[in-house]
């Protein structure tokens, strides 16, 4: 049996989620904001895999959900980066606080 309590994994996921949240809310470069969001998704994946082993009814389903979350995160990163490049072509900036207009 494992000697590590489940709360240790949950606490690690919580710390990583908080780091990602702080980075996403304070950083100026849009690429860093995107990658902070990836870090938050990773923390959620740790929770899913933890509960697939330590839950009341452990099963493989948590790992499968983590795989789905990873694929959706990859698609999100690609689309986000495409939007970023289109934005850079139009406005010549990647700073997130200079993108404050909805007009062309």
């Amino acid at each position: 049996m494992s000697s590590i309590p489940a709360s240790a994994f949950l606490a690690l996921a919580l710390i990583l989620f908080c780091i990602g949240l702080y980075g996403a809310l304070t950083k100026k470069n849009t690429v860093i904001v995107l990658i902070s969001i990836e870090l938050m998704l990773n923390a959620v994946n740790i929770n899913l895999v933890t509960f697939s082993k330590y839950g009341v009814a452990p099963s493989i389903t948590g790992q499968i959900f983590a795989l789905f979350a990873i694929s959706v995160a990859a698609a999100e990163a690609a689309v986000g980066l495409a939007i970023l490049i289109a934005l850079y072509r139009n406005k010549k900036t990647v700073n997130i606080d200079e993108v404050d207009t909805m007009k062309n």
């Binding site: 995107l34 990836e38 990773n42 895999v49 694929s71 990859a74 990163a77 980066l81 970023l84 490049i85």
Partner: peptide, 24 residues
Amino acid sequence: AEFVAAVQILIYSGAITIIMLFGI
């Protein structure tokens, strides 16, 4: 979760990091 670990290394530390470096 060995398979998820392999996928994590392939997708995150491979693909997503490289795509972010391209974006930068």
